[in-house]
Simulated scan of single mutants.
Amino acid sequence: MKKDGNKATQGTSRKRLEKLAWYMDSSIKIPGFNARLGLDGLLGLIPGAGDTIGALISSIVISEAVRMGVPKSVLLKMAFNIALDVVVGAVPVLGDLFDFVWKANQRNVVLLNDYLENPRETLATSRLFAWGLGAVLVIFAILVGTLGFALVRALLNAGGV
């Protein structure tokens, strides 16, 4: 994949993405606390559709990263940040609190900026993350398969078959 060679275009895109991430994750100061939340946290309060709308807006960062030629392992890490935000955000109360802390959009903009400024190091850590995530998913699949097999076996034994 070829990176967008136009530095001015990249700089403009980066500024737009930083502003989007700020609006989504930190634009609202909570009075009386040293904390900020964004529109993503407020959208997450809408039952059913809020987290989905937030994820769609968050995908703008990923689509810009694709346009800039960011490698798949970095994009995977960005997608994981959004997916975790959506999945945990769907849990009532706990998910809303997680939304205020996780700040997936700002994480993704930092990841994009890190890649554009230091591609070799960011690519290495993203590949390590991708391999680790793959290993966790394989272990999870084996565990679920083993538990499913044990459950079926126990049910068959209990039924006298």
Rank of each mutant, 00 (worst) to 15 (best):
G145L: 08
G41K: 00
M24P: 00
S126I: 05
V110F: 08
N108M: 06
S13D: 15
E64M: 09
A90T: 10
V86K: 01
V66T: 13
L84M: 14
A130W: 01
K19M: 13
T52D: 09
L133R: 05
L143H: 08
W131N: 12
T9C: 11
A49K: 07
P31R: 10
L116N: 04
G54H: 01
L56G: 13
V86F: 12
L20T: 04
L17M: 15
G41Q: 00
L151V: 12
L116T: 00
V152N: 09
T52Y: 09
R36Q: 14
P92R: 11
F98W: 07
K72H: 10
A35Q: 13
L42Q: 06
Q106R: 13
V144M: 14
V101M: 10
K2N: 15
G44D: 04
M78K: 02
S73W: 03
G69N: 07
T52C: 03
L123S: 13
V91A: 09
V152T: 07
R153F: 06
A49Y: 09
R153I: 05
R120Y: 08
N105A: 06
L56E: 08
E18C: 05
V66Y: 10
A55R: 02
F33D: 10
V101D: 05
G54M: 05
L137Q: 10
T52K: 02
V109G: 00
K3H: 11
D96M: 12
F129G: 00
M78P: 00
V110D: 14
A104C: 15
L116H: 00
D99F: 02
L94P: 06
V74A: 04
K103V: 03
L111A: 05
A104I: 04
S26T: 11
I46M: 13
